[in-house]
Design a protein around this nucleic acid. Structure first.
Lengths: 236, 236
DNA sequence: TCGTCCAATACCACCGAAGTTGTAGACAGA
DNA sequence: TCTGTCTACAACTTCGGTGGTATTGGACGA
């Protein structure tokens, strides 16, 4: 009778899970060593046989399309094709019911809070010890939303809440809108964007209008500032 | 025969100085304790009588207008009315020949390199011990450009050089242009800017054209990105 | 001392880029 | 099938960015 119904507080979009129902997981990380180390740890500690890996967000997306959704995902924050919160938002869109764990070297408070607001099941440090790692993952897979000990959500409650709300808004962007926003945040003009995506400039404009209405911006420069304020596309 | 002509390499716009010619200095810092502590240390270690202080960039500018230029300035990086490199750029414009020392709690490499490129005489940490502080200042006042030990200019030579070049370009902006750029970087529209500065929108546009030509941008979003890349107006 | 030059600020008219609104097809789920 | 969402496009309005021009004040040399 493994602990069921342990979800205490703030479920994301997590279905009822228990850790032992997680049989197949997907690790998305561009660093091969980290990938292997994680996979090995999981196999040993959880007795998992099906540990899939992907080196980039694009590869992960394709693998999910071809092989179906895993039971859980571990996602690096700093992928070559999706730095920052972007990858999380995109993946959540594709598999809304699968718990996604963010993993990263840096433990900045702001980054954690946006990741959690964007629907991550938890956030763990790459430098975590094996036991702590396993324990965190198990708790996540039982439905708990797990953040690092160092994380204090309330260092500035109001500002933090605003950022969380903003992250939620960004999470409603469609894939195409996300692509366009990324290009906007690189300073590109509508015409350039239309060329890169092979669509009409008019279409780009439509998307931009939708984006700005979703994130509550009027000028494109504001959109850039908002995206940067939650580190949607992290340049660092 | 105090050491004259000790300027080794990269003089900013520094006139021939020796430390004992520095008789009057100006400290600009919004933190009163830090201000007093610095002033006291300087009085004792250098035997200075004229240590002036200002709590904000605006106050500093006015004081310089009224009481004349000091022999050296110590400038906090994070002023209420000028966060980031902006304050340095503005002050350098007002008193190009006075050595300005940046002082800050954080020792980020990128910040240091832009400050130096923008013409700072040196950069010191707020957590520096008294002896090290005094020594650094003395060397600066003898013409040396002093950076913290932790600073490695070459962690990515090419990128670093580009940032330095960019900082130099920003340093050519006139005061009005700087104000306008700051408002642009807050996501404001030309009309709002014209209202805030009480000038015609057409004039705002002229300035913007000048700004963009100076920093080599075509779209205003690019201008925002460039300003952020050198932390001209630091939001942190 | 008077021009002359240059830098900075200011404005207008024009045009291309950005943003709005209305419409339509493709597709998924109820 | 109907409803809602995503994507796509065009016509129109508003805003941003580019010349060209005028005025001021300070620097410099004749």
């Amino acid at each position: 009778m493994a602990s069921a119904e342990m979800q205490s507080h703030d479920r994301a979009a997590t279905p009822r899970l228990t850790a032992d129902r997680v049989r197949e997981i997907l690790i998305v990380d561009d660093h091969p060593l980290m990938c292997d180390a994680l996979a090995l740890t999981l196999k040993i500690s959880f007795g998992l046989r099906n540990v899939r890996t992907a080196r980039s967000l694009a590869a992960a997306q394709e693998q999910i399309r071809n092989q179906g959704a895993p039971d859980a995902v571990i996602l690096d924050l700093n992928l070559p094709d999706a730095k920052g919160a972007e990858g999380l938002v995109i993946l959540r869109r594709q598999i809304p019911d699968v718990p996604i764990t963010m993993i990263s070297a840096d433990l900045e408070n702001a980054m954690i809070s946006t990741a959690m607001a964007a629907g991550a099941q938890g956030y763990i440090s790459k430098s975590l010890g094996r036991e702590a790692l396993v324990d965190s993952l198990r708790r996540m897979w039982e439905g708990e939303r797990v953040t690092p000990d160092s994380y204090q959500p309330d260092h500035d409650g109001e500002e933090d809440a605003a950022r969380a709300e903003l992250a939620r808004r960004f999470a409603t962007l469609t894939p195409q809108q996300m692509k366009i926003l990324r290009l906007i945040c690189q300073g590109k003009a509508n015409k350039e964007i239309s060329y890169e995506l092979s669509i009409a400039e008019a279409t780009v404009k439509t998307h931009i209008t939708a984006i700005m209405s979703k994130i509550n911006a009027r000028r494109r420069t504001q959109a850039v500032l908002l995206a940067n304020s939650v580190r949607l596309f992290d340049p660092a």
